[in-house]
Write a protein that binds this DNA or RNA. Structure first.
Lengths: 191, 191
DNA sequence: GGCCTAAAAGCAAATTATTTGCTTTAGTGG
DNA sequence: CCACTAAAGCAAATAATTTGCTTTTAGGCC
């Protein structure tokens, strides 16, 4: 009933860390090979060289585990590229964001993250947080350069939210033109 | 493996329709009583007076069934209220939409809908379709009155998407002021 | 280093959910 | 009214999940 929560502080070299790593790796491997509906906890356990009960006790159920893996994969590995101006920084970031999120694996990861209910793990919140951080980097860079740049929350409302909405509900990747138009609308002077 | 798909054409008075109705009713009843993680297919089957295998064969798994029920509950039961002007029509609709979607049951239903993968049932698409229809009614009314009104897709990008994004990823209901500000931005003359 | 402790993992039995082959029933069209 | 088909029931087989208990492991302390 009450699901597991995933501990935040795992000593880096310890057994917990090794188990977590091998389970995550097993999940990634299996998801890349087979249909998600065929991935089960006993299967993952076998792949990871771990007993199923370990996974049940640590993650609670498949959904939480998939969400945990997805959040990690959705974490950006680098700050947005510095292209010389805030406008092009944002445009480039947005195009990449839209592409990644609209891809098959991207969509699956978003679904996994949203489907997990875990009130304390706040998976969806983490993803949103990553996006905010990335946008903040662009915003800070703009300020250093003395360029005008809208509030990060405004960028989320105007640019990120529509991209995500289309992907989630319309099952459509916004075209590059559409994304650029949204960026334009955000960065154009009359704001 | 290959999940069930839910038939579109069920003869109204038939046995299928009765089974569907009693299963849906059982799901709604159970969801209102207990935690969603305690709701299982055997339980629903018992409540509905049906065998579990019937549910498995028709819906495939719990997720698909919950999504099926959720889509039905998310369908608006009436067109948006006619308040005399497009601006107020939209404001009123948006506030109600935000409230409903941000409520506990609303969020749960959205999650259920998004979590179901069923490529042919297109649950999320249906929800989005309902929203479009509602907005189109407001737009048509505006046109009849000779009022200016933005494109429905623009309304989705500017108003609906941010509301939904905040609910899904930030776990926050947009405040009434925020919603009204978005409406304002959409309906203000400089667009 | 060796011992103690707590946390996490393994194991296996019990429970519960899911799948499946076959039978029965209800609705439809001749 | 009878035959046919689609969906439901039933029950046995399989698979997943939970749980109590045992074992291992890493960290802290002499």
């Amino acid at each position: 009933m009450a699901p597991m929560n995933i501990r935040e502080n795992i000593r880096p070299g310890g057994r917990s860390a090794r188990v977590q790593a091998s389970v995550h790796k097993a999940v990634r491997g299996l998801l890349s090979t087979m249909d998600r509906s065929d991935v089960t906890i006993p299967l993952i356990a076998t792949q990871a060289g771990v007993t199923p009960s370990t996974i049940y006790r640590r993650w609670g159920d498949l959904q939480e585990l998939l969400a945990d893996v997805a959040v990690e994969r959705l974490r950006p590995d680098a700050p947005p590229k510095d292209t010389g101006s805030a406008h092009t920084d944002l445009a480039q970031w947005a195009e990449q964001y839209a592409d990644e999120m609209a891809s098959g694996p991207g969509r699956a990861m978003i679904r996994d993250v949203l489907a997990s209910v875990g009130a304390d793990t706040r998976n969806a919140g983490k993803c949103c947080g990553y996006t905010r951080e990335q946008l903040q980097v662009i915003a800070d860079r703009a300020r250093e350069r003395g360029e005008a740049f809208p509030d990060v929350e405004t960028v989320i409302d105007t640019l990120v939210a529509p991209i995500m909405y289309r992907i989630l509900f319309d099952d459509v990747a916004p075209t590059s033109e559409k994304v650029l138009a949204l960026v334009e609308c955000l960065m154009s002077p009359q704001r």
